[in-house]
Design a protein around this nucleic acid. Structure first.
Lengths: 185, 185
DNA sequence: AATTTAGTTCGATATCTATCGAACTAAATC
DNA sequence: GATTTAGTTCGATAGATATCGAACTAAATT
């Protein structure tokens, strides 16, 4: 889920931290100066600087009494690359792509696994039918009678289920009155 | 202070909103699908989408029962430009550049305006001296006696103040024993 | 060595906000 | 027209965090 990108946005999602970055984009400052410029207490500035340093956007070098903070030009450069199309899609890499199907199937199923109804909306009907199709073993052949028996475990309207399964190319039929078998998607 | 940039970062500083953007970077989704994919309630997704739409990053078009959300490619493009050096420095445009001097002067001044001491650190001494120099009217000329009298209102060590003012080129002196006058910085 | 000074860490607090459920709206299906 | 369904708005709540003060550290000046 690209925690780095999230940390980056969270680090900059604060007015005072943005101001610090803006100030350091001009030239380096000590923590004391930043505190005075922003009207904040040293402890608060320290907190913000630690946060910005955490994502490598700023760094400090001791100089006499002071800790002089500066922007890390390299990090600033990397930053522009972060927001590319590829990185964005990678953000969604962690989400369960089947979560929608699972929810639809759960919504339309009773505890015993039978269907309350056959969804009217296309997308949901397809999700449910993909689920129903998994009752059939790939490679095996079933007579129409067997198919109806198995479909009846889901819903009494076995004819509709059978028609939809074939229409969606989840199942196929040999010739006019032959056996059925499951197709792989 | 570039509220737009701040709103932008705040809008993306949330794991689920980032995921939404990532998902929409792939292809459009309805709110219902997003809710299922993220495991959130419709109201929560609605909240997030409103936030993202607020910065123009996503938009919706009605499609039958559904509201189909998509990423705004133009906004995505603008985004990359936002994080330029110029925009960054503009973020700090709102901060009072003299705040540091003011704080230093306040720290070293008593309520009656006299100095507790002359700062030992260069930066602070300079800030205080710039403040002291403003007691003198530009263009006017002062004898050494007058200068000492005026400096005594700040600190008994008038010799040090006088020397520093000349050294910093805040004041100048005619020849060897002539009058003093204030220089503009 | 003692003292001053910038900076950090830690705890407490107040503000912000992500999340949810309930009530409501709009649109499509029956 | 009644009903279902996706979506929004609103209020409440729990969790996150910005801010501060106090105690402490490190370094430099005296």
């Amino acid at each position: 889920m690209n925690e780095e990108l999230l940390s980056f946005f969270k680090a900059l999602a604060d007015a005072n931290r943005l101001k610090i970055v803006g100030l350091l984009a001009g030239h380096p400052y000590s923590g004391e100066e930043l505190a005075a410029l922003l009207g904040l207490k040293p402890s608060t500035v320290s907190h913000h600087l630690a946060r910005l340093a955490g994502i490598g956007l700023v760094s400090a070098r001791p100089e006499g009494y002071y800790n002089v903070w500066q922007l890390e030009p390299a990090a600033l450069e990397r930053t522009r690359l972060l927001f590319s199309q590829d990185d964005l899609q990678q953000v969604a890499a962690g989400v369960d792509a089947d979560a929608y199907d699972h929810k639809v199937i759960a919504d339309f199923s009773r505890p015993d696994g039978t269907l309350k109804e056959i969804p009217a909306q296309r997308k949901k009907r397809e999700a449910v039918l993909r689920h129903v199709a998994q009752a059939f073993v790939p490679g095996e052949r079933y007579s129409e009678k067997q198919v109806n028996t198995m479909l009846a475990r889901f819903h009494p309207d076995t004819a509709s289920l059978r028609r939809e399964l074939v229409g969606m190319h989840l199942m196929a039929r040999e010739g006019g009155g032959g056996d059925y078998w499951r197709l792989d998607p």
